[in-house]
Design a protein around this nucleic acid. Structure first.
Lengths: 177, 177, 177, 177
DNA sequence: TATGAATGAGGATTCATTCAT
DNA sequence: AATGAATGAATCCTCATTCAT
């Protein structure tokens, strides 16, 4: 029974990501349930309300990002390379839709904590990259984080996007002529 | 009463831009009317339905962009400079919300035509900038347009944003390491 | 000015009859005004509200019917002939739509009085026709009036309709075998 | 809950027939739901929109008429008697309101097909009645159908109405003076 | 006085959420 | 525990009516 429950939960999450990606934030709970091959009632057994579902999607993605960033940061490579890897990793994830959903809902404490963790991790990587001279110094780490955010959270973002590439190039020192 | 009507129309547009920017595309017609200090009926007298309002906002912004781009293109300056001016102009305009709105509604022929015009103008400027050697050649004009789109149409975009600056720097020749 | 006013009033009545006939009872006041070449305000100057307009249409038709019935009753012809003439007269008038409109609104005293007058006139004619032996005796005058009502007030009623003819034939004595 | 749902569906249909009969086609969905002791949402679960409800009412009545007409036509009785039975059957059914509703909505293909079937059945019965000499020959089957339509679909029609009787008498041969 | 802009109550419809089975 | 029917608040839109010009 536990196995069934876990399987159902996974199906819901997968369907939700899929539908949000395809049809935007307006997708109904009924549609998500149906796409998962379940009744609405079952969906609500797993997620008490719509916000809980959206929050869960966001938290998963954020946790994944945090873990990936930590893993890369532990590697013995330049901080610039760490940053590039993290950015390219994110660009392949469903951040876009999470952001599009995230507009409305007041983030839960759990999400806020995750955001804080991720931001701190990134800021540290960025600062060290500036120290090692591989990242331009005329913008603050917070600004860089905000910038990456936009690039990574746009719909259709891909690891080798022109925008990803151009933006990374623009972040190298010696820009702004 | 002609004067009043025009004033009301302006108020509606202003309120709509404001609310869409603040609360996203889900804002209700009732709220827009109220923010304009009017009844819903008045809103509907000026715009037959929600799509008409959104379309009007989009068309205004697009027409403004087209006119500005044309004006700059007529100047005797480098194409790169033209591009920078256009980008900086857009970054101060309400494109963000228009894009966020544009997701849903099937664009009208008028809007599609405007989009086509703007894209053609930009593509031409970009191509010439590549010819004059001020813009990197390893991405196509269409890709550059798409990229500018993201940068300019993000919420809170400003003419002197770090992202705007970084992106422009990244577009200069000699990027990609 | 008085001439203008009367002309406007006529135009409104004509347009209203026309539109109601064409599009049914759902026609809007705005549309009626426009069809009359006037603003809504002017329409409302002539008829304080929708009910007043509809009532006026009904009253005109009823008064016309009453006058016609009286005129025919004064002729030196059989009562059956009188009845036939009245029925054929009505079948060419806009009773259908008036009835379709009259469904809802609580008739005004004026209308009720007209209805009473018309019914009394008809009942008298019918009774006398029964006395002279030209109209079957197995249904009451009131029933005959109700019956004529349906026949005359159906959409598209014409003086020489099959239904009008069949029904008149059925009213002759010796029916019901 | 299947049983409950069916019961609710029935209640909706009953209430709708009742209210349409009493107050005409303008009755609101909210009122219908309330009369059925349900929320609007439930009404909409059973009938996706107003047209679907009206269509369903119309189709039921038409199908019932078709089946009854077929059954009578299979009997070994005069075609005149068949016609009389069909007419008397209809006069007790909720055709009135269906007609009053049928004005507005563009009939669905299903409804059109039913109408065609019913008309064909009736036309055949009428033609044969004319052949057997029990129904006057000076009006076409289509005209007779139209005429029956009016008589049967008027509000308050009853199997033994004066109008029904008079009309049937008028249809016998030897009418028209 | 004629006009048409403004108003807002009312009706159709959707969808997050609850609850009986 | 799963289901999907029921609920009703919220949203879009219409139109009778009022009122400023």
């Amino acid at each position: 029974m536990r196995a069934d429950a876990r399987r159902n939960r996974e199906r819901i999450i997968t369907s939700a990501l899929d539908l949000f990606a395809k049809y935007g934030p307006g997708v109904s709970m009924e549609d998500i349930a149906q796409a998962a091959g379940l009744g609405v009632g079952t969906l609500y057994r797993h997620f008490p309300d719509r916000l809980a579902l959206v929050t869960d999607l966001a938290n998963s993605a954020l946790a994944d990002l945090r873990d990936h960033a930590r893993a890369q940061a532990a590697e013995d490579i330049s901080r610039w390379e760490v940053l590039v890897r993290v950015v390219r990793h994110c660009a392949g994830r469903p951040f876009a839709l999470i952001t599009s959903l995230a507009g409305t809902p007041p983030a839960t404490p759990g999400t806020q904590e995750l955001v804080r963790e991720v931001n701190a991790l990134l800021a540290e990587i960025i600062e060290k990259a500036q120290d090692e001279g591989t990242l331009r110094r005329d913008i603050t780490p917070e600004q860089v984080v905000g910038l990456l955010n936009v690039v990574v959270c746009r719909p259709g973002a891909q690891p080798d996007d022109p925008l990803t590439t151009v933006m990374l190039d623009g972040l190298k020192p010696g820009g702004r002529r």
